[in-house]
């Protein structure tokens, strides 16, 4: 009898306490309370949706030349929406028609696919190489660290885009080479982030503990140090996706990236840039698409930084 009553008391004492909140859960809670992060997520959500469902959203094939297939189509004609008072005898094109009689809206929609692909692949390449170099430099130290970091310093001494241009010239113009060029040029940023984290983690007690129980250097590096260095990397990579998209578009703009008729936003802009005074819509929409995409990743990156790195909170 008395024992039951003790148990009941114990239960009432325990129930009001909630389980401790893990760091990821806390980060998530902080993350979803930020306006910028939410907006960023929303933009990227729309983008991903557009990319997946592009064939259903786009009214035309992005490379289809409509001359002769559609009555009354005019080269570089402006946006025409019947809903907004465009005469019903003219064919409807939400963002107008480009210099090759293609529907600009369809091209911009398909461009979302390419841009996401460009952003993720480019950043993945530089993260993979950057993490490896940074981790080795920080963990091994000594002359290895010195050599790696000085080589990366040389990369940083070049203006970003010019080095990328030179690399693409070596490899030959094309979308994949442009992505590779931008990826190579971005390596130092990731290597530095990881190296800094590794350096500070190397002296932590949990690393000492791991060493004491006899773990090898690789197990310590991959099992204990890198997982603790992951949050600054996530932030850097998210912001890097935006940068990669903008820089690859810049290379395409210079004619070194995606080649026509690929519906890539930068090359679409490049193709019509001399028409900016007569057909500004052909420059405006692809550029707006680039800007919104990059904005989405930047906002998301900022939100992640505030959520994952409590030290940076003002």
């Amino acid at each position: 009898m008395s024992s039951t009553s003790t148990t009941t008391t114990a239960v009432t004492l325990v129930t009001p306490m909630r389980p401790a909140e893990g760091p990821w859960r806390r980060a998530w809670r902080q993350f979803i309370h930020q306006r910028s992060a939410i907006i960023g997520m929303a933009i990227i959500g729309v983008l991903v949706f557009t990319a997946i469902f592009a064939p259903w959203i786009a009214p035309f094939d992005p490379t289809e030349v409509l001359l002769g297939k559609e009555e009354g189509i005019q080269k570089r004609s402006g946006p025409c929406l019947h809903l907004f008072g465009c005469p019903p005898d003219r064919p409807q094109h939400i963002m107008g028609v480009d210099g090759n009689f293609r529907d600009l809206f369809s091209r911009v929609i398909y461009g979302a696919r390419l841009s996401l692909f460009i952003g993720f692949v480019t950043v993945s390449i530089s993260v993979a190489i950057g993490v490896l170099l940074g981790a080795v430099a920080g963990f091994v130290g000594g002359w290895v660290d010195n050599v790696i970091m000085r080589v990366l310093d040389v990369v940083l001494a070049f203006p970003f885009l010019l080095l990328a241009i030179a690399i693409v010239s070596v490899l030959g113009p094309g979308l994949l080479n442009a992505m590779l060029g931008i990826a190579i040029v971005s390596i130092p940023a990731y290597a530095r982030v990881i190296r800094a984290s590794v350096l500070s983690a190397r002296e932590e007690e949990y690393v000492l503990a791991a060493r004491t129980i006899g773990l090898g250097p690789l197990a310590i590096l991959f099992g204990h140090i890198l997982p603790n260095a992951i949050s600054p990397l996530i932030v850097q990579a998210t912001l890097g996706i935006g940068t990669a998209i903008i820089e690859v578009a810049a290379l395409s703009f210079l004619g070194l990236g995606a080649q026509p008729p690929t519906p890539e936003w930068g090359s679409m802009l490049s193709a019509e840039r001399n028409q900016v005074f007569t057909a500004p819509h052909l420059v405006f929409f692809p550029g707006l698409a680039i800007m919104l995409t990059v904005l989405g990743f930047n906002l998301l990156g900022d939100g992640l930084r505030d959520a994952l790195d409590p030290r940076l909170k003002v």
Binding site: G287, M291, L295, N298
Partner: peptide, 18 residues
């Protein structure tokens, strides 16, 4: 500032010229 850092230089240049 958020919109500013997301702006492609080449696009902004063309739009300003226009």
């Amino acid at each position: 500032s958020n919109v500013g850092v997301s702006m492609p230089v080449f696009w902004l240049g063309l739009m300003l010229a226009y």
